[in-house]
Amino acid sequence: MWDYTEKVKDHFFHPRNVGDIENPDAVGEVGSLACGDALKLMLKVDKSKRIVDAKFKTFGCGSAIASASALTEMVRGKTLDEAAMITDNDIADYLDGLPEQKMHCSVMGREALEAAIANYKGVKIEKPVDEGIIVCKCFGVTDNKIAHEVREHKLTTIEQVTNFCKAGGGCRSCHPQIQAIIDEVWQKEKEKALVGKGAMPVKKLTNIQKIMMTQETVERVIRPILQADGGDIELIDVDGDRVMVSFRGSCAACSGSKVTLKSTVEAKLRELVADSLIVEEITA
């Protein structure tokens, strides 16, 4: 049974501002047919950068349509800067709340708005959440997006992550990776808090710390990413800042493995262990 508020039902059964705007000043498109929901938001903006008209088209469930309808009502009459302040929670609040499993519908609304504003300004979104490594293959959700939702909404469980961005809702094979991202975000936040208080000054790692953290990062973060594509990696040795690894599985034969070495393995190790690390591939 549906646990929708009267407001959600109203916006679903009588959606406001459905349709296309001719020559829109800004368009934001998110989602896809394969994901199960998609939203196209179109804006008309006047000289003072005020949104004078907003229309939408949505493919999705009842709350996706209601969220899009609510969003168009919310942005009308606002300046772009004012509209940019709207969060997914604001959209949910406007509808007197959304069921927990449907929070991703309001997230889709906010993302379409962000995309439309960026489109108007002709800029690329600073850290587009769509870039990064696809973690959830069923719904095409990246590690950046998951980390963003975890931080933004203070999520601590995989179920919550699924509610907010659908990641992990399909075949579930990415659950260990999602857990690793949650752990990583909160580990980092904890460290940041400690650093902020001056309790744990950033200090040089000892050799043994460096080796152990490298090993842990390879096991918990990097291997699941590569295994998702049928590949694997083995940590061979750590010598000072030199980390030596060997690819296994499909990575071993993959021509893109050099890119993976830098963009995934080295990037993750630098992020989570030490900036100074250099990763090298050892071939048998």
Partner: peptide, 21 residues
């Protein structure tokens, strides 16, 4: 549909039949 399953998982039956997402 995924949105009616309670788990966001679209029908395993239709997917096993290769019905497009």
């Amino acid at each position: 549909s995924a949105c009616t399953s309670g788990s966001l998982e679209p029908s395993h039956v239709l997917r096993a039949m290769g019905v497009p997402f």
